[in-house]
Nucleic acid binder design. Structure first.
Lengths: 221, 221, 221, 221
DNA sequence: AATGAATGAGTTTTCATTCAT
DNA sequence: TATGAATGAAAACTCATTCAT
């Protein structure tokens, strides 16, 4: 008389707090990120590649996750959560919009240093395949939309307008786009310094001053 | 003493002039583009899906192309070439940089109208995997780098500077970055009107006037 | 009101007399033999290779033959019939067994000159796959077993025994085996002179004298 | 920047010592040999046939081998190596050339018993296609040319001449051919007993005595 | 709990054969 | 009659997932 007990462990989602992440899962996350940084594509990333990069058995991955997708999505989510936590903690410490913006540019400069990193980042964000959609769905499920750069920026701008640092005669939507475009421009300059014949270091003050001139309250009042 | 009879027909590259494209190939291109627009991913696009979308036999695809990749890359190349030809013909008809830019924004607004189209476009351009690299390589081989938006923009800017419409005190590289970023953000606003709470139609005049102010010759002379 | 008339032409069998062979069929035969001599294998020979070697359309081949196999089998049969006719005509002109044998060795030396030719010949003869079986079956159907080297040899030996040139105390079956084996080894020596450190020319007299000694009537009477 | 993680297990070559051969590979070898003995052809042998004969999953075959060819070639190599080891061990135990020859004929009689086996054996040895070439290449790579019957025979003859058992007035090349032809003759008689009207058992002593008479030292000194 | 060998469903690719021109 | 583009059935090969150890 055989008994079938559903002893399935609750699986990992990627939103677990850092301390509760099992070692093997940490290794998996590490493996996924390394492969992505090496240029691999989440769409064609093989489970065997991930586990061998992580140095663990293939079966182990399936002890913690149900599918290949879950592994990848959780790894990306985890990293996004970590970055977001770090960045928003620092942003909270800064008081003014332009201070925050300066910090943001610094962070981006640092993280984007590696060539091609920019492309890969954008590529990831525009991912519309299964994994990509799952990511967005998972974020929505978690009710935590503010993990994205765009949401973070909008918040910064809104607060800046509320504090009177930024012009309020322009639609917030336009400001969002304008600021985003400056950021995209800056990220591109970090990743492809040879194209623009101008370094990110030279560009940063230029961007900041232009933002101040064009969107700061003084430009208008 | 192995025999390797290679009586193979010369295969299709994607650079063939419109009139010389066989019907079946045209159907294949059509199928690929429809699938991409439906959200399929070039990395995981199945040959059988393409051919059944195109309404032709699977073997037929292999009569014209050697591999699955070639089919997809050629289809994308073909579309890029077509768009480039159309756009650059119209650009040539316009005389001033800001005229050209206005046309560009209009075209993008029109082509980007479908939601998600933007993401997919950017995603494609930042593709670094096999297909993506093959695309870039193929473009380079053909010595026709001006099929890309970036190259087109750089030409427009250079000519604008030569005609004295644009500031020449800034490095051209920087202007490229700045203008590209505006375009990217505009495209995003077309695809995601709800995020920015501002329509593309409303945004366009802002962008144009800001470009004029920031990069036009009057901003400097 | 469509009429379906069975106008199917009688297909080619390979036994047609030389003069009645249509040009296109002749080209097909030629193509098959060239490919086999180049080392191709009848098992994996592609119809498209044959027709393009023959310089005719693929569909044309199917006008004359029903299947890929039929093409190949008929081509081989045709060549066998041609060789057999030529050789047996000359054999009929010679009167003694050893005279005939000498001629046979000369012919083989000449035809086997090309390196690897031997291997290919033996390979073909020992073919047991569809094509091979079809060959044997076709030969049997035609009631013309004497198209094969073995049958030809048996006839030579039987006649030699009847004429009293060869020992009759040994079973004819053994003589067939023994002589065939000598022939096979001679053919091998022609194709691979470097292995035996002895040329076919040097070997021929040895073989003939040994045959005379071992199987000639003098060895026994 | 493409990622190519090659964590592949070293694949099987066919030269592995018996004890190190994984069970599944052993089953594969068994499947290949059974199919060949059933008359299948290595050129058209299907992977799915092999694996289903072997009673294992198709994917498993590809865990151990890279391609269909490798599976077949390794299976054949393995069998050849096994036979060679067995035979050459026994040959080393026998001291005289004629003793060795007697053993060889016994072995051949036993192994060749099944009708058509002879044809298939010869066919395999003369295989000039991919698999066949791969076989020869693989043997050469392993620097073990003495896996072939021909090399084994030449060694036996050379040693027999050195020991004074065989005539030394004839070129060794001729002796090789002569002995080979006797062997071929014997093998044919085993496989096709009905053709020769003489059984292999009756033929054996005859062949041995004839060899002794024609090539033994007494025939000459 | 951890493993990786085994699996087979799902792909890509090939090529004999057909058939409209 | 001759053609070769088109086809799809069949084969090779991949890899996510399972499960016995």
């Amino acid at each position: 008389m055989r008994v079938e007990v559903n002893m399935e462990m609750r699986k990992i989602t990627g939103f677990e707090p850092k301390e509760q992440i099992p070692d093997k899962v940490r290794q998996l996350y590490q493996g996924v990120m390394e492969l992505i940084l090496e240029g691999a594509d989440i769409r064609t990333l093989k489970v065997s590649d991930i586990t061998s990069k992580a140095g663990i058995g293939k079966g182990t991955a399936y002890d913690y996750f149900d599918t290949r997708e879950e592994i990848i999505v959780s790894a990306i989510l985890h990293v996004m959560v970590c970055i977001q936590e770090e960045v928003s903690a620092e942003l909270a410490r800064r008081t003014g919009f332009f201070d925050q913006m300066e910090y943001l540019l610094e962070v981006l400069e640092e993280k984007m240093a590696e060539r091609e990193c920019f492309l890969r980042f954008i590529h990831l964000l525009t991912e519309t395949s299964i994994c990509g959609l799952k990511l967005q769905e998972r974020i929505r499920e978690a009710g935590q939309e503010d993990y994205t750069l765009v949401t973070m920026l909008r918040n910064m701008i809104r607060e800046g307008m509320e504090r009177g640092e930024l012009r309020t005669d322009l639609p917030i939507g336009y400001l969002c786009y304008a600021v985003s475009s400056q950021i995209v421009c800056f990220m591109a300059s970090v990743s492809f310094p040879d194209i623009g014949q101008i370094t990110a270091g030279e560009l940063k003050p230029y961007i900041l001053s232009q933002m101040r001139e064009s969107y700061g309250c003084r430009a208008w009042k």
